[in-house]
Amino acid sequence: MSDLLTDVLSGGVRGGTAIMLAALGETLAERAGVVNLGTEGCLLVGALTGYAVAAETGSPWAGLVAGALAGAALALVHAGLVIWRRADQFATGLTLMFFGLGITSLFGVAYVGKAAPGFAPVEIPLLSDVPVLGPVLFAHDPVTYLSYLVAPLMWWWLRRSRSGLLVRTAGERADVLHLHGYRAGLIRGGAVVAGGALAGLGGAQLSTAYAHAWFEGMTAGRGFIAVALVIFAAWRPLRVVAGAYLFGALLAVAPVLQARGHAVNQFAMDALPFVITLLILAVIGRRTLRAAPQELRRVFESSSSN
């Protein structure tokens, strides 16, 4: 039983890492007052670019950096349209998602089935021997270890640093920034682009450290899970981590049980993350909006019919 739990949780961390990175990126953007529904697109361009650069240069680390840059580039388009051109955030984000899907299908063809170097799991001595926690947390690829640092750093930075305060202010009271001579647009743009970089990193983790392959549409909705996750994690980085691993674990339940010969309805399991999201949204309802950054509430409320 504990063995089964270990496998589910371990799979949760493995499969949740890309979701977590994307969701942390989305958290950053939303804390600055911008929703990026194009996160799925950022994941995809990160996955393809990461894999392609790893294949061409022979270095998965170069792929990782390139994946982050690609995610940032796509997010920059979002920032440009939304902040400087005042385009609708939801329409722009969705369009970018389709753009990411289309452009990666187009340019990704050459890398389908192509071999590329990737990250292999590295067991951390001593730590990986700890029962349950060892295999769950310390028997993964280096990118997953790196990802452990992102949420605590983001939490600390948003809370304690001056630049973090500026980002939060951009999301809560942008007019205050103007009074003090800051340009809210620039701060938001920076947050959106940095968020895109995190999503791109997540995509590169998916292709170079997890699936070890590129295939069009391989993110399979994980970017949307990430966006939903940010809302019910109430825009808090540490809760985002918990939620991402929970979704990862839900995705891992079916293979864990099936590999032991148990009957599982994979189709129902596939729907589970989305059903749970809907349930949570239904339960928290309006309270969702109360936790939202003020500037974001304006975006949300402009789209609801009250």
Partner: peptide, 23 residues
């Protein structure tokens, strides 16, 4: 031992299936 992925191509799910079978 059979594991199904309910997708003609979902590499991430496949990675999880392979990891568990090997385990």
């Amino acid at each position: 031992y059979v594991v199904n992925t309910s997708s003609w191509c979902d590499p991430a799910k496949q990675a999880e299936a392979a990891a568990n079978l090997i385990k």
